[in-house]
Amino acid sequence: MPSTAHAFVDATASDGALRRFLHGLPGVDAVGLEARAAALGTRSIKTTSKAYAIDLAISMIDLTTLEGADTPGKVRALSAKAVHPDPTDRTTPTTAAVCVYPDMVATAKAALGGADVKVASVATAFPSGRAALPVKLADVRDAVAAGADEIDMVIDRGAFLAGRYLETYELITAVKAECGTARLKVIFETGELSTYDNIRRASWIGMMAGADFIKTSTGKVAVNATPANTLLMLEAVRDFRAQTGIQVGVKPAGGIRNTKEAIKFLVLVNETAGADWLDNHWFRFGASSLLNDLLMQRQKLSTGRYSGPDYVTVD
């Protein structure tokens, strides 16, 4: 985005300038951050607010399949589930998107038809990001050409950890330029960045480079989305909007498996970034098994009894 780039023209003028900017951001106290995330995790969300949160969470899911074994059949099944998560209850909201590899975008697009469900595609040599820049950009172009509404790119963690911040920034701007109208999610792989200071710095690189979403992880490493790293990224988007007027979305991905956890994340959103982010345009869950638990809880709330895994669809 030209306006974003303009706001940080000095900070991104050189590797040194960017380093000084990033290292000038307030530090993160790990104990305090985790304590705050845990404290918000004790909020008790019941009855009407739980019903609201469950529907909101369903509508925020990027229903994901990212396996070597993905087939057109699997992607079609997933797409059908995204449109009608609960075939027995047509008031259930659709998920926000399905998330697939680039070669499955066309299949997903066709399967979704006219439904209001986006197709998100991972790209840039997901999940490791270990490929040459032209290869990564070709990956993005391919997904966009196939009709992807959203691109989930990975940053080069090697470059970031080696301190080549400007290279990380420029990779994102280059990918952004290939996206056209597709919205760009930037995956940091927070489990590999390891420290909260790194996650804050990566968040700012992503936002300054024009990310539409900042996203925790690929789901392919040991530590994925956690309440603490998501809280930290919510603080980043909150501060970035206060400074630039530009709103950026957040997507925790990987490891969020049940309704209780998902609601804790929504509480984090509500009490950190605020109500403006409580909308699938600005917050997503990268998840697959989460959806069925949300559906079972939704059925419980409407019928008063638990159903069980045979009353939701496997996909």
């Binding site: 909020r43 969300i45 607010s49 609201y52 529907d55 409580l278 345009h281």
Partner: peptide, 15 residues
């Protein structure tokens, strides 16, 4: 696009 029900605030019911 934002869905209609999302515009309601996330009020916490009494617990």
């Amino acid at each position: 696009m934002p869905k209609e029900f999302n515009t309601a605030a996330f009020e916490y019911a009494p617990a």
